[in-house]
Design a protein around this nucleic acid. Structure first.
Lengths: 412, 412
DNA sequence: ATTTTTTTGTTAACTTGCCTAACATAATAA
DNA sequence: TTATTATGTTAGGCAAGTTAACAAAAAAAT
């Protein structure tokens, strides 16, 4: 079932309309129950949605709200079921304080990493308490087959819906991380395969769907759960089979006109006096496959047997094999050069390295040295998240979108 | 007179403090007279500061304010002298409407382009009505001598202050565009020469100074007066003696941690299989000097005499000289490759070319073709502003900062 | 010339959303 | 049992907006 352009737009833009006819009101009011809350109630809900259950005094302190205002706001929120009291805490002295977190009517989201080897799915509340999760490994023979991924997503979502618990509240949104550019209405719609995800998967009616590029999702995860927890601005550079970057500026993803911001696989390369760049060449050159070809081409017969794959090479380098280490270091220099180019454009102050190869801490010193030598001061860190990075990122983004939706404050 | 670090910080941060002691209150209240205005009055002032004199109905329409609110807000603003009635307009029917613009107490700013060949100065109201302007051409022998530029700035400012008219209202701020990185407090302070501007120039006491990189200023000007009038997001790429870029994202400049965002003179280059990049090499390679060396090295004896300089080369290319055109086109290919790298990182959708060489429309087709072939869809335009771009940009930035200051809303 | 219509601007009364001050409640400490 | 302290509610006030009604000033209609 192919989802056409109009339908996809609808998925993107759902819930925006305030000028719809009255007949849709009941639906809409159920979809964004908090759109008529006071500003203070909204800010309280936003804070609780971050994931820390809090007492009224704590919330009031952070948000600079008086106790009467807290009282009124919590009244509004509790009435709608958007927050719930989950316990009490006793200080050293004085009356106990009630502890709140988002309530059942805040509902839950489904976040899906629709990767080419795995489909990972997490169901969670909007304050990111995990309710359910599944992982489906795609048969290796079907790598890169968009339709098979779509079918796997459809299956996993069906299975999830069958197990839905009443206590989870309503399903508010589905977020899907895809390994392609994600383009808004005014961008270039050609040459993106974002619709393929819907070729076999039809999302439940009335549940908005958000799509995001998988590298961007990993960047979001690094910020919310990983190596960039303290940073508002940084770049996440992924080096593996392919290369890509996710850019976070002031806590917001940089997407670009065509959803192509961070597509460093298209940096001009080769780039030197007398040479002419080839489109996408740097992605091929830096990718694991070409890298291993170069490694094997010069691997000495005298030494150990040839490394089986990139992971094997990295392992041997880590064990002290000089030949392996030389190759890894050479690759790290190339990565450092790419990082330097990104720093020259963005000057993010922090770069997090991730991906199949980039995640190795062996690369770190060389990448950092080269980048800092070529460009401007930048801290380089290695990703602390494993293969869950992408699904955690799309979960975070979906929760944020859901909060915006519930509060009637569309952000982007 | 060297301005030390503490003084510079003070210059940057002036007007922020709300926790100063009461003795400073009178001064402060004179400095940000509008800090106690209602939100609606502030938004009205902001709109008028954009430069379009407007009637109350027009303002109310745009800002969604009722007539009584307009009445109250205009009352506040007129009382403070922040707006003034400058006339009336008669519609087809009905009562005349008064036309307003920022009033005398809104004051004026001095904007300075402290370039290495010229010092350009504009005095204008915060709605950018030109009050006075001067240009000083530095003696060629003193190119790049920071102290001479500083002295020229000091002289021009003195001359301006001497000519100040009472009708201009108070001097609110001085903005200076400098050809170096401009670094905030948490960035890398080394290797920027931003303080040199103060070596011979001491700004009047109590007048805040804002510094900004000159390429960033040109980008701002392209947005407010030039080729990117309709764009919120674009990159301005300057190609001349040196190369640089200014990045505008959603109407805001991207500065980076160390003020080095857009410093594409540090893109990794040469970058090819087997080569290692050299810091700053692409700036040398792309700069006019190295470019002309390559041109002259292969210039055929049989043809016309060698071109005298880059401008001469461009002129001959424009007249149809095949040799010159071939060189220009080759250079345009290199520029296209650089643009492609920037597009791969930012995907801005629009790139404006400027600078001594970049401003030539001869380059446009090739740059556009190469960039679009190597990377993602991007429109390429040629700058429409001449040498005034930088001073217009710093003027715009200074006016924006002044409005923020007057309204007590520090933005960045 | 007078009345009507239309737009602009003001006045009056109300609403919202926050605040402070005072009071009520529930816990520990004395 | 009383004092102290933190939490939560009630009462009353204020700032900044709203709508409704009225006043003023202009062209259009009578």
């Amino acid at each position: 079932m192919q989802v056409d352009g109009a339908r996809l737009m609808q998925l993107f833009l759902q819930s925006g309309g305030t000028k719809e006819r009255d007949i849709a009101c009941e639906q809409r009011c159920n979809r964004d129950p908090g759109s008529s809350l006071t500003a203070s109630a909204k800010s309280i809900f936003r804070l609780l949605a971050e994931g820390n259950p809090s007492t009224r005094p704590q919330l009031g302190e952070v948000l600079n709200l008086s106790r009467p205002t807290m009282s009124a706001a919590m009244g509004e929120l509790e009435q709608l079921g958007l927050v719930a009291k989950i316990g009490e805490v006793q200080g050293l002295i004085g009356r106990k304080a009630a502890i709140y977190r988002p309530g059942p009517q805040a509902g839950h989201v489904i976040a899906i990493d629709a990767g080419s080897t795995h489909v990972r799915l997490r169901v969670s509340t909007i304050d990111r308490r995990l309710l359910h999760s599944r992982v489906y490994r795609l048969p290796a023979s079907q790598l890169l087959l968009g339709e098979e991924i779509s079918r796997a997503v459809a299956d996993e979502v069906s299975a999830t819906l069958a197990e839905t618990d009443d206590g989870w509240g309503p399903l508010r949104m589905i977020g899907i991380a895809v390994p392609s550019r994600v383009v808004g209405p005014q961008g270039d719609q050609n040459a993106t395969r974002q619709e393929e995800i819907f070729s076999r998967f039809e999302p439940p009616a009335d549940v908005p769907v958000v799509l995001e590029n998988n590298v961007n999702c990993a960047a979001v995860a690094e910020r919310s759960n990983g190596a960039a927890k303290d940073a508002e601005t940084f770049a996440y550079v992924q080096i593996g089979l392919k290369i890509g970057m996710g850019v976070m500026l002031g806590g917001r993803l940089l997407r670009g006109r065509n959803g192509a911001a961070g597509e460093i696989g298209h940096l001009a390369f080769p780039m030197a006096d007398g040479s002419r760049p080839i489109p996408g060449e740097i992605e091929r050159y830096m990718g694991t496959e070409a890298f291993m070809q170069r490694v094997l081409a010069t691997w000495p017969d005298s030494a150990d047997s040839q490394p089986a794959d990139a992971a094997d090479l990295m392992a041997r380098a880590g064990e002290g094999c000089a030949t392996a280490l030389a190759h890894v270091t050479r690759h790290a220099e190339d990565i450092g050069a790419i990082v330097a180019s990104c720093v020259s454009v963005l000057d993010p102050g922090l770069v997090v390295l991730g991906g199949g190869l980039g995640g190795s801490s062996l690369l770190l010193p060389t990448v950092s040295d080269v980048a800092n030598r070529l460009s401007y001061p930048v801290e380089v860190r290695t990703s602390t998240l494993g293969q869950d990075a992408t699904v955690l990122g799309i979960e975070k983004l979906t929760c944020e979108q859901t909060v915006d939706l519930l509060l009637g404050e569309r952000r982007d």
